[in-house]
Lab assay of single mutants.
Amino acid sequence: DELVREILGRCTCPDQFPMIKVSEGKYRVGDSSLLIFVRVLRSHVMVRVGGGWDTLEHYLDKHDPCRC
């Protein structure tokens, strides 16, 4: 939770990309009902993408309208 909030807090946009914790390891992202699975691996916040894992920073770079 703290690492996810820290990464989201780096955004300086007036309207921050919403990530709402639904349950342990599950977050709702953006304005959709899309759920992502998150885990911490060796101090990196990882997001389940397709059949693999990606860093939360890279995921936000691709999906946050402010960072695109």
Rank of each mutant, 00 (worst) to 15 (best):
10 R>I: 03
8 L>T: 07
42 R>C: 10
43 S>Q: 10
1 D>Y: 05
47 V>W: 03
47 V>N: 00
63 H>L: 10
37 F>H: 15
37 F>R: 15
57 E>H: 04
22 V>R: 07
30 G>C: 05
62 K>C: 09
2 E>P: 09
28 R>E: 06
34 L>F: 11
25 G>T: 07
33 S>H: 13
60 L>P: 01
27 Y>V: 00
19 M>H: 07
9 G>S: 14
55 T>V: 03
45 V>W: 02
38 V>W: 01
11 C>D: 02
49 V>D: 15
20 I>D: 08
34 L>H: 14
45 V>F: 01
52 G>L: 13
34 L>S: 15
64 D>G: 03
10 R>D: 02
10 R>E: 07
56 L>D: 02
4 V>D: 01
64 D>T: 01
68 C>K: 08
21 K>V: 03
63 H>T: 08
27 Y>C: 01
61 D>C: 07
11 C>M: 03
68 C>A: 15
32 S>K: 10
58 H>N: 15
8 L>C: 06
56 L>V: 00
12 T>M: 07
38 V>R: 03
21 K>C: 05
25 G>L: 01
56 L>E: 00
61 D>S: 10
8 L>Q: 08
52 G>P: 04
3 L>R: 13
59 Y>Q: 05
21 K>G: 04
28 R>M: 13
48 R>G: 09
40 V>K: 15
60 L>V: 04
30 G>D: 08
65 P>T: 03
48 R>L: 06
7 I>R: 02
51 G>Q: 12
33 S>E: 15
50 G>D: 14
23 S>G: 13
32 S>E: 13
56 L>S: 04
48 R>P: 05
56 L>C: 01
68 C>T: 15
32 S>W: 01
50 G>S: 11
15 D>N: 14
59 Y>W: 15
16 Q>F: 05
4 V>S: 02
43 S>P: 13
6 E>W: 02
10 R>C: 03
28 R>I: 09
22 V>L: 08
41 L>E: 15
51 G>I: 05
17 F>E: 01
25 G>E: 07
15 D>S: 13
61 D>P: 03
47 V>Q: 00
13 C>S: 03
46 M>I: 10
46 M>C: 09
45 V>Q: 01
65 P>Y: 02
43 S>Y: 07
20 I>F: 11
45 V>I: 11
17 F>I: 02
14 P>Q: 10
1 D>K: 09
60 L>Q: 04
17 F>T: 02
7 I>C: 07
41 L>P: 02
10 R>T: 11
29 V>K: 02
16 Q>K: 14
16 Q>H: 06
19 M>F: 15
36 I>Q: 00
11 C>R: 01
38 V>Y: 04
1 D>F: 05
67 R>Y: 00
66 C>K: 03
63 H>Y: 11
29 V>H: 10
62 K>F: 09
8 L>S: 05
6 E>S: 09
49 V>K: 08
30 G>E: 02
31 D>I: 10
52 G>W: 09
56 L>M: 04
43 S>D: 14
63 H>V: 12
38 V>K: 00
44 H>T: 14
9 G>A: 13
66 C>R: 03
31 D>P: 12
68 C>P: 08
60 L>F: 01
9 G>M: 11
49 V>H: 11
48 R>Q: 11
25 G>N: 11
28 R>D: 06
2 E>I: 15
4 V>H: 02
26 K>G: 05
29 V>I: 15
33 S>R: 12
39 R>L: 07
30 G>M: 06
61 D>W: 08
26 K>I: 10
3 L>V: 08
5 R>S: 14
65 P>F: 00
50 G>R: 10
60 L>R: 01
44 H>C: 10
19 M>E: 00
45 V>K: 04
27 Y>D: 00
44 H>W: 01
4 V>K: 04
33 S>M: 11
60 L>K: 02
21 K>M: 08
34 L>W: 11
26 K>R: 13
11 C>E: 00
59 Y>C: 05
55 T>C: 03
13 C>H: 01
25 G>R: 08
34 L>R: 08
65 P>G: 02
67 R>D: 02
65 P>I: 04
22 V>K: 07
17 F>P: 04
64 D>E: 04
4 V>L: 07
3 L>A: 08
9 G>V: 05
18 P>L: 06
58 H>L: 04
36 I>N: 04
20 I>Q: 13
5 R>N: 15
16 Q>D: 01
41 L>W: 13
7 I>M: 09
55 T>M: 06
3 L>W: 04
44 H>G: 14
65 P>K: 03
58 H>D: 11
63 H>N: 11
36 I>R: 05
61 D>R: 09
62 K>W: 06
65 P>Q: 03
27 Y>F: 05
7 I>Q: 14
62 K>I: 11
34 L>N: 14
52 G>Q: 15
35 L>R: 10
22 V>Q: 07
37 F>K: 15
36 I>E: 04
28 R>T: 06
2 E>W: 09
5 R>I: 06
67 R>I: 04
48 R>M: 09
24 E>T: 05
44 H>V: 15
67 R>P: 01
40 V>M: 09
56 L>A: 01
21 K>L: 05
18 P>C: 06
34 L>P: 14
17 F>L: 04
26 K>H: 12
28 R>L: 12
7 I>L: 13
57 E>N: 08
62 K>R: 12
62 K>L: 13
59 Y>R: 01
55 T>E: 05
42 R>F: 09
42 R>K: 15
21 K>H: 07
46 M>R: 05
7 I>F: 04
37 F>L: 15
43 S>I: 06
40 V>L: 12
8 L>A: 07
17 F>G: 03
8 L>P: 02
48 R>H: 11
17 F>A: 00
